[in-house]
Design a protein around this nucleic acid. Sequence first.
DNA 1: GTCTATATCTAGATAGAC
DNA 2: GTCTATCTAGATATAGAC
Lengths: 234, 234
Amino acid sequence: MSLTILPGAARTSSVPDKTEHAALNLHEADEAGKGRIRLDNESAILLAAEQTFARHGFKGATMAMIAEAAQLPKPNLHYYFGNKQRLYMTLLSGILRDWLVPLDYFHPQACARDAIERYVRQKMCFTFSRPEASRLFASEILHGAPLALPLLQTTLRELVNDKAAVIDSWIAQGQLKPLDSRHLLFSIWAMTQTYADFEVQIGAILGDEAEGPRAQQRAVDHVLSSVFRMCGLA
Amino acid sequence: MSLTILPGAARTSSVPDKTEHAALNLHEADEAGKGRIRLDNESAILLAAEQTFARHGFKGATMAMIAEAAQLPKPNLHYYFGNKQRLYMTLLSGILRDWLVPLDYFHPQACARDAIERYVRQKMCFTFSRPEASRLFASEILHGAPLALPLLQTTLRELVNDKAAVIDSWIAQGQLKPLDSRHLLFSIWAMTQTYADFEVQIGAILGDEAEGPRAQQRAVDHVLSSVFRMCGLA
DNA sequence: GTCTATATCTAGATAGAC
DNA sequence: GTCTATCTAGATATAGAC
């Protein structure tokens, strides 16, 4: 199941910074020379755009801000991505794909407790490692998903219904206490993402305690034990 | 404890639509005549602004959109609120105030179970009755709370620390299972608000089932029983 | 492929008539 | 107190030199 919207959308994570992958690029000989520069520039732009869109929203972010963050002239952004909306969409589709991957842990043969623990840990890992990606996606949904709605109504909906059926089977087997499986997913998403999406609020409340790996561990422990209790796995 | 940022900030909810409160306004005789029109216009603008800012974000919303929604000419918005940021701030401060009110249920003498049930129900009520207010506030936090941060670091922080102490006392009394009281609040906020902030996503997944009072009841039941289980009150 | 200079459009804000 | 007409700033996007 591929969630890519734009064909050949370049992903930040697929372009390791300085490691020499020239050998891999030799397959496309005529694209290897320019392709290297293109990939580097595109990944720099995508990284800068993710941060800028997350911080200022789609309208609030300007191409000039993104260009400065990427240390490239403004017209280069149009050269590589055509326009602002296409750049934004490229980011969105990549984030949704990464966001859904952890659901793979939910399959009928899996042990419910193990699957849920791995899922929660993966979501918390995403939250703390890519908070800007989480906020960018949250901002899109919050404002009515003007661009992502078609994806939500098809791919996401089908995937969630599949995984809800898996959870229901775990309940039928007596592995979990009865609960609404789709609402359970909504709650897990909410509890995990809040540490990225509302990071500023949490930081304001916790103060210094909010920072560092010990704070992250505390959050993971809390969410994991809460989800276990919700599922009757405590 | 007052959370008002702007002195005399007019609140939508404080202006009943057509009920005759002229008698109450007679105290300020010279403001009664114009005051009526002013209050009506201000509340129309605030209502329109809440919807528009929630839907498009601060930058994405334009004064022209708000004016059209309020059915008033653009310059009137500037006449009443000076500029876009002041209009936005007036909304923000009112929402934060309304958002914090339910925490009053948390006081040391209260029964923990009753207080938590009332709190969750109040939060869910806010979510379903004023989803745009929730999204407007969420958007502000999501983008780094450029305007609300000072409030979060003072009033919100102190209030939360107070209420966390109350929860801790309930735990010490054995009314609740041990857990991190402040993270419990983060989780309750996340689980309740997600039905407003991510309404589009949930709607896309649940389809027709997401609408109507029965869907709301289902969500309330889920969140309430989940929070009870988290607290060992199931 | 890169980037300077510029065209075009849109939005916030206001002057001034009523 | 209200609103038409307009000013100005700033943003997207592109033309065209290198």
